[in-house]
């Protein structure tokens, strides 16, 4: 529970459906003295309040060490390797599911329910499919593509068939507060400032100034640190040039930022690693699918070929300018989320 409207309405729905509900909030690690946004005192107070209103027990489980190990360190390490990691993926897989499922079992729970906008469907062959939310605006399957058959078999998404506006309306009907944590771009564990400040503070060696090169490897400027930039970024380069320049690549060995104009940017082929197939096994043959390369980007059609060792090759039908190593590429066939992986650095 976050104290927000989604998990609160989820709990109310479950309670109404006759489940024995136990509310849990994870205490996550946070930078310095600031509280992690997911479990700040006001969020805790709100969740506790909701549990009290709906009359079910509520516990806060300490996951600070595990979160630091499983989410924060790989995040820092990812930037050290020049990629743009998405810590929410590790958090979902290792903390919000694996870690919490084990503890939920110890509390006597059979299922884990969250306020995510996504659907789980059981096929006649006893397989679990992950489907997009009916509210496509709110769909969160992108960050849930890391779930396994086992996790899905123990998961309930009570908001599966609801839209955000229906959820708000239900909150009103249940007389629940409809507080909403602002959808911030910042990471939950970063206190003051943004992730760049956090990285600078944590390990000054990660983000140090270096050259900006053009595609012909000529030095045309200096950057303050690779972590400040992401592929496709235009702002903040501070180079005067007749045409707009974009970040097209990062060269971690030379600590160099490679920039070029729009033509240099688009790519149609890339690889992804650490791939999770929701079905549990990769497809034998190349498949046609649509591919989403960022949480909020549209899907692009392409062909996915499973390779050895949890990797895939992805061939898009049309080039995309912002294929970013470290972010997830998630594969869909219509409403079905097939899985996804982490975009490889070239």
């Amino acid at each position: 529970m976050s104290g927000g409207v989604d998990s609160s309405v989820s709990a109310a729905l479950l309670k109404e459906q006759g489940y024995d509900v136990i509310g849990v909030m994870l205490r996550l690690w946070s930078d310095s003295d600031s509280q992690n946004r997911c479990c700040a005192p006001d969020a805790q107070a709100e969740a506790r309040h909701i549990a009290g209103l709906l009359e079910f027990p509520f516990y806060v489980i300490d996951a600070q060490d595990q979160f630091y190990q499983a989410v924060v360190l790989p995040f820092i390490d990812g930037y050290a390797q020049g990629i743009t990691p998405n810590p929410c993926l590790n958090c979902n897989r290792l903390i919000r599911w694996d870690f919490l499922l084990e503890r939920a079992a110890a509390l006597g729970a059979k299922y884990l329910a969250t306020g995510h906008y996504a659907r789980i469907q059981q096929t006649p062959t006893e397989h679990y499919q992950l489907l997009k939310s009916r509210d496509l605006q709110k769909d969160q399957s992108y960050v849930l593509h890391v779930l396994t058959q086992k996790s899905l078999s123990q998961t309930i998404f009570p908001l599966a068939n609801l839209s955000k506006s229906q959820v708000r309306k239900l909150a009103g009907e249940y007389s629940l507060p409809v507080a909403e944590r602002p959808d911030s771009q910042d990471l939950c564990f970063v206190g003051q400032g943004d992730y760049r400040d956090f990285l600078r503070k944590t390990d000054p060696s990660i983000n140090k100034p270096g050259p900006i090169l053009n595609p012909e490897s000529k030095i045309i400027g200096e950057h303050p640190g690779l972590a400040d930039f992401t592929i496709g970024q235009r702002k903040g380069l501070r180079i005067s040039s007749p045409e707009s320049l974009y970040v097209i690549r990062k060269d971690i060995d030379q600590n160099a930022l490679i920039v070029g104009n729009k033509e240099h940017l688009g790519r149609t082929e890339f690889f992804a690693d650490q791939v999770n197939w929701i079905a549990g096994v990769p497809p034998q043959d190349p498949i046609q699918a649509t591919i989403k390369i960022r949480y909020k980007s549209p899907e692009t059609p392409g062909t996915i070929t499973a390779l050895k060792g949890h990797s895939v090759q992805i061939q898009l039908e049309s080039p995309l300018p912002d294929i970013t190593p470290g972010q997830a590429a998630v594969f869909y066939q219509n409403d079905i989320c097939l899985g996804g992986g982490i975009i490889r650095s070239d």
């Binding site: 027990p57 516990y59 489980i61 300490d62 503890r103 110890a106 509390l107």
Partner: peptide, 13 residues
């Protein structure tokens, strides 16, 4: 043993 978790588990039990 994590005393905090133990109290939660006992309570749930």
């Amino acid at each position: 043993a994590d005393g905090n978790l133990l109290i939660s588990v006992l309570d749930a039990a």
